[in-house]
Design a protein around this nucleic acid. Sequence first.
RNA 1: GAAGUGAACUGGAUAGCCGCCGGUAGUUGCUUUUUCGGAAGCAAUUGCGGGAGGAAAGUCCGGGCUCUGUAGGACAAGGUGGUCGGUAACGCCGACCGGUCGUGAGAUUAGGGAAAGUGCAACAGAAAAUAUACCGCCUAAGUCCCUUCGGGGAACGGUAAGGUUGAAAUGGUGCGGUAAGAGCGCACCGCGGGUAAGGUGACUUGCCUGGCAUGGUAAACCCCACCUAGAGCAAGGCAAACAGGCAGGAAAUCGGUCUUCGGACCGGUUGCGAACUUGUCCGGUUCGCUAGUUACUGCCGGGUUCGCUGCUUGAGUCGACGAGCAAUUUUCGACCUAGAGGAAUGGCUAUCGCUGUCGCCUUGUGUGACAGUACAAAACCCGGCUUAUAGGUUCACUUCGGCG
RNA 2: UGCGGGGUAGUUUCUGUUGGUAUGAAAUACCUGACUUUGAAUCAGGUGUCUGCUGGUUCGAUUCCAGCCCCCGCAG
Length: 124
Amino acid sequence: MDQRFPKEDRLRTSAEFDLVFAGKCSVADPNLVVYIAKNEVTHSRIGLVVSKKVGNAVHRNRWKRQLRAIFRTGKDRLPTGVDLVVIPRSRNHPTHSDLRRSVETLARRAKNKLNKRNSAEQAS
RNA sequence: GAAGUGAACUGGAUAGCCGCCGGUAGUUGCUUUUUCGGAAGCAAUUGCGGGAGGAAAGUCCGGGCUCUGUAGGACAAGGUGGUCGGUAACGCCGACCGGUCGUGAGAUUAGGGAAAGUGCAACAGAAAAUAUACCGCCUAAGUCCCUUCGGGGAACGGUAAGGUUGAAAUGGUGCGGUAAGAGCGCACCGCGGGUAAGGUGACUUGCCUGGCAUGGUAAACCCCACCUAGAGCAAGGCAAACAGGCAGGAAAUCGGUCUUCGGACCGGUUGCGAACUUGUCCGGUUCGCUAGUUACUGCCGGGUUCGCUGCUUGAGUCGACGAGCAAUUUUCGACCUAGAGGAAUGGCUAUCGCUGUCGCCUUGUGUGACAGUACAAAACCCGGCUUAUAGGUUCACUUCGGCG
RNA sequence: UGCGGGGUAGUUUCUGUUGGUAUGAAAUACCUGACUUUGAAUCAGGUGUCUGCUGGUUCGAUUCCAGCCCCCGCAG
């Protein structure tokens, strides 16, 4: 399995982030908020937003590294062809396995929500 | 052995799987160029090697670097404040001096000037800066009254020892002295002045002398000495692209040349206006001056979707000898040690180490279980300061107790 | 990353003190009373702040001076 994580897999510019937020399609659990939007490339991309409320620079960097590692090693269990923006909510760190389960569940729910919304728009 | 003081250092280790960011060597692909040998750039991939801190933090000081500005001077504004040294520089560091604290090792200290001037001190208290006289003490001398002739009383007065208030009351303690007292006199201490010695100096030590005279506050205004342009890598440069709107102003005269006699041009003098001189003024520089723009200046906006560079070899790190009490530094040698950009330097697993608690007996620094293993992550780069920090290591010194 | 501004009633905001013991006020909150059958609204009266924290200077600090903490804004 390809577990690499090149720059093409990341959201990098302000415009890309704004596009995802403009879709207004999000799901959440106590740990994370996930925004989702369909993209123009074949693979999925991820962007991270970690606010200062989560902790100091050391804790913020740890959040980002863990979330990137989960995306990198679990790409086959995540939906394809979408942009994800993941936002941590709480100050305390969950364990790695809890975080992995949380990300995969939320990504699946978000994909279902996006499909339902798209079919509703086509019907109307 | 116990308690403490001051410095310096350290800031977990190993293995496996999977990744990230630079560098370098090769391979492959694409593009550009070509003197057809190649060269350059980009991307992918393989190998090798590198990849957070002592505070990277706070952004409190000082510099480098970059742009803007700059003939010069004065003022203003801000900062620093024992002395000598160190340094590129500092508000930093070292040594020393004075004050305060500690039995001591040591710690700490914005520590110039209050006889240059001004201001301030609520309440309380008699009195708060020219001292004053509330309660007191005295009534000796001179005046008046009474008198049993011993003395008693009164006013005028003397006094600052004692009391009260306050943060602070015009040297302190003791003896003498006196009507009572007082530096009124004396001794010691403190203070002022002079002088000698030591020290580069802050200052220290001694001697003589003055009877004491000018209390606090300058992190109040101020005075003195010294220092200081402004902005900041989102600085700036290259390439590409774009080049729009609004606003701002002022003359007289002299000489010469030409003339279609209306004027035009050239040069000078005195002025005027605009802009700059990044606080103000003097002074200076540039441009323009009868007419309309241009030059010039100011303000506002649009686009650039974020390319390359600046970007890491530097007051660099380590070591040796020498100078210096030290901070630091001469010389020599060796070394190259992160350069990201929605932001890398890691994710997971296992084992070990360290610390604490509890258990077990084979009382060993043994073994097992559980818990903990800090603070905090480069953003142009250095020198400091300040603040945060689990645990561990080393050295020097002090006090107390025991033994010899 | 760099630069700048601020912190006083339970909450939001203004004002005062050349350093003398926090003056006055608005909105909201709370309490009491009036009006009402009751409540809301309205009216009247009342309650409450020792100044973000820690030191220093001073007789005395909200004010002056340091060091921290928190909040907010700006930039091509």
